[in-house]
Design a binder for these strands. Sequence first.
RNA 1: GGCCCCAUCGUCUAGUGGUUAGGACAACAGGUUUUCAUCCUGUCAACAGGAGUUCGAUUCUCCUUGGGGUCACCA
Length: 507
Amino acid sequence: MDEVRTRIAPSPTGAPHIGTAYIALHNYAFAKSRGGKFLLRIEDTDRARSTLESEAQILRALRWMGLQWDEGPDVGGPHGPYRQSERTELYRARTQQLLKSGHAYRCFCTREQLDELRALQTARGEPPGYDGRCRKLATAEADGRASRGEEFVVRLKMPRAGEAYKEVWGEDVDNEDTTLTPGISGFFDGIRKEKVAFENRGVDDQVLLKADGFPTYHLANVVDDHEMRITHVMRGEEWISSTPKHIRLYQAFGWTPPRFMHLPLLRNSDKSKISKRKNPTSLSWFQARGYCRPATVNFLALMGYSRADGRELFDLGELVAGYDAARLSTTAPIFDFAKLDRFNTHYLVHMDRVAFGAYQEDALHALLDYLGPLLPLVQERSRMRTDLDRWTSFLFEREPRYVEPAFRAVGLDAELADKALKLVAKELERAPVIPAQTCREILDRVAEKLLFPANSLYMLVRVAVMFEQESLPLFEVLEFLGPDLVGRRLKEAAAFLRQRAPAGKKE
RNA sequence: GGCCCCAUCGUCUAGUGGUUAGGACAACAGGUUUUCAUCCUGUCAACAGGAGUUCGAUUCUCCUUGGGGUCACCA
């Protein structure tokens, strides 16, 4: 049998995500348990959001997990480059190939036209989706418009409703039925152990090549997985609904698709897909908070997976040794900090002295690294080394520890404070990023509008975010936390005040 | 809303037609520890609902309900 090859393909658009680590862990364990290769590929085709800094952080975080890739941007390999931004020529050539074979076409629709179309469809209660109007364009006309410099994207021709075509179910498993079914496409999911079928009419013509010449995820991912000889794609179940497009692409190229396995998504405690708005998701945060490697790996390995022998405590090597993809579950697990904390306690208490020393050192480095721009502000108010914790502990508090006196000191009655917090939250929501200076302007504006003394509003927000009157400079901290976390704290504070407001005032 | 995925204690899960439905975390109650933590013992706690298949359904089928994902020139 062919060598098993899996990959993790993070997009370097932010902090290393806990979900990436989770998916990576399974890909690694699966490949290694079968004596195969595990690769790392950087999917940086989003020019606007990808950064080298994020890429470096992600690699560092995955290495911290103990994962080692056989091929990747930093270690090289026979199928490189492993950074998609360095493979653009390849995608362009592949796009030409599809254009020539008639599997793809140029689309000259502007964003405005597409927005209009979507608005119209929504208004009419139709499902939104590209209507394929440029599909009818004659090749000669399209070539002409393109050579005249008109901007265009390239779209994949999906089979139309009822149109008969050769169905592809992905790798044939256990003699799965592969008969032709006109109008239906689908794939075999290795975790659900079932065919997942879609009607063609619900799948529109996906963009493959953007106007900037960069490929979309769909194209790059298919081309690279094929070029890099990936045999098994283990990814989040958020990808299930676009898999028919991917299958269609493999088919258009005449390639055999890899085996797909869609892992259940990690969830917030309200069961929504895990997000930084509701949960810490940055691996850097976990390290800085002091979660040790074995606990993190062990706990993550228990999400959606269990061992046949029922053991819950095991290390990465043991996970790999006995890994069985058939034991992956289909239900999405809620990320439970209480259990993670328990695991951390267990590993910390039981590790030997040398390891404990190394852990402390590692965690301190991670903390200092995580603090970054906040560190000088801590230094300004440092009398002792341990003051570090005093000023930064609020960052690692998962639940706010509000106390009434701190709010009372603000000098505003609860009702007004509640109103102010909500207004600030709303204003902040409009800004995708909030530099310190902008924060100040926003707060000043709100204060003026509500006829509040600016200082009172500052203190109110300060306590809402950092719990205490004595704390780091407000605006820098707001910038550091970002709109998601700040918004969350403001709402939590408002809820706290509402709950504490004198009952029976009116109603 | 269309399409798709999912459904066992509060949480993570075992279970693949016959079990007192098992374990772990949390919670609670004890014990060990001069105290605290660790550690140990115990208690509470679940098959979403309804049909069907079957001698027998947590397990198989269908429906309902609930939850989630996805419908971008982001991945």
